[in-house]
Nucleic acid binder design. Structure first.
Lengths: 153, 153
DNA sequence: GTTGTATTTTTGAGTAATTCACGATAATGG
DNA sequence: CCATTATCGTGAATTACTCAAAAATACAAC
């Protein structure tokens, strides 16, 4: 299973390093993680790593197209390995957890705006906002307005 | 014309102050401005103001629902006064300029995901990415990869 | 296996955008 | 006009990164 990750890096023209493999593994088990979460995860196996190195790796992998970066409003950047299809996300407005949402209609959604002010449109990004199952339960008490920082466990 | 702005603040339960009026005016002439741009604009009439005060006003107005905050990836937060309808945005991938895009289909777009992992969905946010008319022209030379910071004049 | 070199990582400092705290000031109801 | 709050201004702090340079490492060539 590590072989597949090594090949993935190799194919992208990147050197195979412990940090990169560990990061891809971490992203496999916890998609949509942010840099800080990944850092804490990597620290277990690689105690000498740093948050800057994690940002470094994330930047390299993103630039090489191995992972994808998403930036929901009010949250630090999240990363995911699912890059082959054009899918979208639901973000929990309460806890900030994220889940994948398949494209609404086939690959290219019904998203060709009628009037685009002369802009050429290359890509449509859809973010749904709502409540995750867990936060639906605990929505009897007042919801914290701005707490979408920690990823739900 | 100022009367209308005053009433708008009043109705939202906010006190009518020079800073808030000036900010709403500035947002009228330049929608999708960021805090820094608004600050420079306000400084002309209100030399004693500060960037923190602008953030303060922006926060208050956003919380009261008088303005809306949008946060495109890779850009500081932008603000707009058009809040009564559910519209979307096109962001220029090169210069970061933003234009409004009317809802793809009526008020509620064709955006009900088939599978939402148990999330209740309250709102769909659509961001189109492309090139503005001006940047389409100047796209013969290599485009800067990460320069969507300044708003287009 | 050893070596050379370019890439990566580490370490440290720096930056942008925003938030927090709190005394000073100003807006509104009475 | 006055009192009471809301708001503003000032300064410090925070978050999420980016940048730079030295130390370590991966990998191709021998």
């Amino acid at each position: 299973m590590q072989k597949e990750l090594k090949y993935e890096l190799h194919r992208a023209g990147l050197r195979v390093t412990g940090g990169r493999l560990a990061l891809l593994e971490a992203l496999r088990s916890r998609p949509h993680s942010d840099a800080e979460t990944l850092f804490r995860s990597l620290k277990v196996k690689l105690p000498r790593t740093s948050i800057q190195s994690v940002h470094n790796v994330l930047g390299d992998l993103t630039a090489a197209g191995v992972i994808r970066r998403i930036e929901p409003a009010g949250s630090p950047a999240r990363y995911e390995r699912r890059i082959l299809d054009n899918h979208h996300h639901v973000v929990c407005a309460s806890c900030g957890s994220i889940a994948d949402v398949d494209c609404v209609i086939g690959d290219a959604p019904c998203l060709t705006p009628s009037e685009s002010s002369g802009y050429t449109i290359e890509r449509a990004e859809v973010t749904f906002w709502g409540l995750c199952p867990s936060c639906q339960q605990s929505s009897h008490s007042a919801q914290s307005r701005k707490a979408p920082t920690k990823e739900k466990k």
